[in-house]
Amino acid sequence: MDKKPTSYRHTIWPFALIGAALVVALVARSQLVPASFGDAGHFRADAIEEARRIAPRHLGQSDCEECHDDVAHLHDKDAHAGVACETCHGPGADHVAAGGDGGIQRPAGQQPCLVCHELMLARPGDFAQIVPAEHYRLVGVGDERTECIACHDPHEPLFMDHDLRTARLHPLIHRCRDCHAGRTDETMARPAGHPAIFQCDYCHGEIARGFADRPHHRMRCATCHLFFRESESAGRILRDTDPRFCLLCHRGAEFRSSDAPPSIDWPDHRADMAEHATDLTKRCIDCHQDRIHPLRTDAAAPGDTPRGGKES
């Protein structure tokens, strides 16, 4: 039987066509690869430049200082040092672009303060937090709608008059909430049988005992001696002596309730005392020390009080 030989001629064209398509695809690919692709790795190197070109919205302290040097300077010396202007005021780019005319947030009401300072579960114990109602009761604010800024200038909230960075170093003081993070009913009283922890009265026993007999005993030591926790083992302690710090509680105002701490009229109070009227170095505690606690004595050295906490 005469077999016809296998004929492949007709198969050339389909393969040739596919070969041509592949060549076209390869050429097209080489044309379509973005310009800077592969220059710095397997990506479009120009993308880096594009990522850099985006305009910032937050400008930073130094830009704010160019116009608001005074506020920024105030800000430096108080508890909000380290809080950027734009944390509270929002991004400043629009404000600068508008030549300082608008384009910036001016926080109002209590909420912008409470975002940070409301007592909240999981907030570290060394951070200043309040339950607004309790705080207002303590300082005698009758109207619950009173804004925080009625007493606290946000740029100078505590009139510390110290640079935080220069405050005294101090071993760590524990507060109840350092351990009891979830407890919101913190009191000054240490429950019987509670293990000893490092507290103010261990070293400053005499001052603490004297303090207990005087009208300020409702407050914690750290309410005035602001404590700033800096590491696992140490912090910085501030002793505030600016009259305006005392006035946070003692200045008379319409919003004070009847059971408010004793109020005075300021600055009339200073004017009333002829001999001090012009002496601006005079501090409240120069006259009213006895209302707070005995002054530091030689006995207030470490080891003065046994560390076992047996006294309670």
Partner: peptide, 23 residues
Amino acid sequence: CTFCYHRLARGLAPACVLTCPRE
């Protein structure tokens, strides 16, 4: 997150770092 790459290019810290009030 880009670490605010556009800010790094200008010597600025990332926005979250800038605005964190507690470091």
